[in-house]
């Protein structure tokens, strides 16, 4: 049994959320660079140039890439041989978020659903936990903006709709969003499980590295098929028209009920902010 004090969790979350919001990952930047070449529209190319400049300025000036610093989404894997000491685990996550959003001058975007009153410190965080073998804690943070999140959906398809049904649902979501979710987008597709796990799978799909195809080659081929179809919509960077509407598409799949075909689409904007740490 390994002991991990909550202070380590708090400090890690504080650092990760500030880092994620200010420093765009190299992999996303490289994807922008490649996309300038791929993009056919002059306005689309100009958008990519602006995004690269934006990432550079954010890093130099230590200000967020995007003013929508998101809801604080966290995925935490807890080794089963870890004993968390010093206080309440959930409270420690929220404390880390609270400190990050204050110290990092990040926007607090969390409010009451009806009164719209801001909670003031960007808590509560969205917390997903998983117990895994080992004696470490792995923390992944993904501040997620509202603009892109608004264009996702869970739909219970009829099994006979199959892959064609899934594909047309994803394209419907992409076309419905058009310029609004800040393309170039990344599309996470969760297939199977039940109502809520399909949604979670679609979010987890967004955490896959850009350019990586699914380990299952058949699913990988479907990802490629979807990516190509999305890039034929013509929406383009910022919706100004173009050939790079999505940077990537990831599918996560698991078995489902014999009566169901749950599918979730979660859309991510180009401000693809993910950072992780292992304690």
């Amino acid at each position: 049994m390994r002991e991990i004090h909550i202070n380590e969790i708090i400090n890690s979350l504080e650092k990760l959320f500030i880092d994620a919001n200010i420093n765009l990952s190299q992999s996303v930047l490289e994807c922008f660079e490649r996309s300038i070449e791929k993009e056919e529209s002059p306005a689309g190319k100009e958008v990519f140039r602006e995004l690269i400049k934006n990432a550079t300025i954010a890093k130099e000036e230590k200000i967020p890439i995007c003013q929508d610093t998101g809801l604080a989404v966290t995925f935490i894997e807890i080794g089963q041989d870890v004993h968390i000491t010093g206080g309440n685990f959930i409270d420690s996550i929220n404390e880390g978020v609270r400190r990050a959003y204050k110290k990092g001058y990040l926007r607090k975007s969390c409010c009451d659903p009806f009164s719209r009153k801001n909670t003031g410190d960007n808590t509560p965080a969205i917390i997903h936990t998983k117990v895994v073998p080992g004696d470490h804690i792995k923390i992944t943070v993904m501040p997620k903006g509202g603009g892109s999140e608004n264009y996702g959906e869970v739909r219970m398809l009829v099994p006979s709709q199959g892959w064609e049904g899934v594909k047309s649902f994803v394209l419907e979501m992409v076309n419905r969003g058009g310029p609004n979710p800040c393309p170039p987008i990344i599309v996470g597709v969760g297939i199977g499980g039940n109502f809520e796990t399909s949604a979670l799978l679609s979010k987890e799909a967004l955490m896959e590295p850009l350019g990586k195809r699914n380990d299952d080659a058949a699913i990988g081929a479907l990802e490629t098929e979807l990516l190509e179809a999305i890039n034929r919509t013509g929406i383009g960077p910022q919706g100004y028209g173009g050939t790079v509407t999505a940077l990537d598409v990831h599918i996560k799949m698991m078995p489902c009920h014999i009566a169901s075909l749950p599918v979730a689409v979660n859309i991510q904007c180009h401000a693809h902010r993910i950072k992780e740490a292992i304690l």
């Binding site: 934006n54 300025i57 200000i63 967020p64 995007c66 310029p179 800040c182 910022q238």
Partner: peptide, 13 residues
């Protein structure tokens, strides 16, 4: 007008 969404650092300049 459209400003580039997600280019908040650039626009701040």
């Amino acid at each position: 007008f459209g400003a580039t969404g997600g280019a908040g650092a650039l626009l701040s300049k």
